[in-house]
C-alpha cells in the first residue's frame, strides 16, 4: 500500500473514530481543570488557559462525593467477591459434576442473563421492602449478584470446558474427593478465568444505576452515579466544573482496572459471545 492509500484506509478513519470515541473523556478532563469563568467564555473551549483545582477541591470538601465513592467501591468489591465465588462453584457443578437436571439448569442460568433489570426493578423493590432491605447499602451486593452470577457462570462454563478431564481423573485416582479436586487442582488452573469474571463483575457493578437509584434513598447510601445525578444536579444551575471532576474521578477506577487487565477483558468479551 502506498502512503496515501494507508492514510485513507487507516490514518484518517482512525482519527475520526478517535475524536468521536474519546471526545466526552477529553471534555471531562478539560472542564475539570478550567477556571469557572472560562467554562462560559473562552476563545477556544477545547483548551485550558487558566488551570485550577477549585472544582476538584470543592467536590471533595463541599459534597458527599468521597462517601459515595467509598460506597461504590465497597459494593463493587463485595458483589464481585460474592458473584465470582458463587459462579465458580455453580459452573463447576454444571460442567464437571453433571447432576440430574444440570443441562436445563445451565439453560435457565443463561436465560437469567438476558432478563434486563428494567423489567425487574418494580417487583424487586416490593421484595426488598418485605425483606427489610430497602435503603440498606449492603443489599446492593446480593442484588447485583442477580445479573453478575448468570454472566460469570456463563463465562466460567466456557472456561472450565477447555480444561482437560484427565487432570481431575488423575486426582480422583489418587483418592482425592471431588471437593478437593475442585479446590486444589481445578481452582489454580482457573485463575485466568476467575480474573476475567472478576474484572467484568467489578466494572459492571461500578456502572450500575437503576437499582441503586430506586432502592437507596438516604444521601449517605448513594453510589457515585446516583449521588451525582440526584444530589449534585439541583435546580437549573449546573456546577459543570464539579460535575465533570466527579465524572472524571468516577470513571477512573473502571478504566484503571480495565487497562491493567485489558487482555483478559477482551478475551472475556469474545468468549462470552461465542459460547
Amino acid at each position: 500500500m502506498t502512503r496515501t492509500a494507508r492514510f485513507f484506509r487507516i490514518g484518517l478513519p482512525l482519527t475520526l473514530y478517535g475524536i468521536f470515541l474519546l471526545l466526552p473523556f477529553y471534555w471531562m478532563l478539560v472542564t475539570t481543570f478550567k477556571e469557572r469563568q472560562e467554562l462560559l467564555v473562552s476563545p477556544n473551549p477545547f483548551l485550558i488557559y487558566h488551570w485550577t483545582l477549585e472544582h476538584v477541591v470543592g467536590l471533595l470538601t463541599q459534597t458527599r462525593y468521597l462517601h459515595w465513592f467509598g460506597n461504590t467501591l465497597l459494593i463493587a468489591l463485595g458483589a464481585t467477591l460474592l458473584s465470582v465465588s458463587v459462579s465458580y462453584i455453580t459452573a463447576y457443578a454444571i460442567i464437571r459434576l453433571r447432576f440430574p437436571g444440570s443441562k436445563p439448569f445451565g439453560t435457565a442460568i443463561f436465560l437469567c442473563y438476558i432478563v434486563p433489570p428494567a423489567i425487574l426493578f418494580i417487583p424487586l423493590g416490593e421484595v426488598l421492602v418485605k425483606l427489610g432491605w430497602f435503603d440498606k447499602l449492603w443489599a446492593l451486593i446480593p442484588i447485583y449478584a442477580t445479573f453478575l452470577v448468570p454472566f460469570c457462570t456463563w463465562l466460567l462454563i466456557g472456561f472450565l470446558k477447555s480444561i482437560p478431564r484427565e487432570l481431575e481423573e488423575a486426582g480422583r485416582v489418587d483418592g482425592a474427593s471431588n471437593l478437593l479436586v475442585m479446590r486444589k487442582i481445578i481452582l489454580p488452573i482457573s485463575v485466568p478465568g476467575l480474573i476475567t469474571a472478576a474484572i467484568f463483575s467489578f466494572t459492571l457493578s461500578w456502572n450500575e444505576y437503576l437499582y441503586a437509584l430506586v432502592y437507596m434513598s438516604s444521601p449517605d447510601n448513594k453510589t457515585v452515579s446516583v449521588g451525582m445525578t440526584s444530589e449534585l444536579i439541583s435546580g437549573d444551575v449546573f456546577q459543570w466544573g464539579q460535575l465533570m471532576a466527579g465524572a472524571l474521578i468516577g470513571v477512573l477506577p473502571a478504566i484503571v482496572v480495565y487497562f491493567f487487565f485489558v487482555e483478559y477483558y477482551v478475551a472475556g468479551m469474545a468468549g462470552s459471545l461465542k459460547d
Binding site: 462453584i89 455453580t90 417487583p123 424487586l124 421484595v127
Partner: peptide, 30 residues
C-alpha cells in the same frame, strides 16, 4: 456427599437461592 449428583446440587444452592429469590420470584411477582 462426594457423589457427583449430590455435590452438584449442593454447590448449585447459592445460585438457586440468589436467582430464585431475587430474579425469578420478582419476575413472576411483576
Amino acid at each position: 456427599l462426594d457423589s457427583p449428583p449430590v455435590l452438584g446440587i449442593l454447590l448449585s444452592i447459592p445460585a438457586i437461592v440468589i436467582l430464585g429469590g431475587l430474579l425469578a420470584y420478582p419476575l413472576l411477582l411483576g
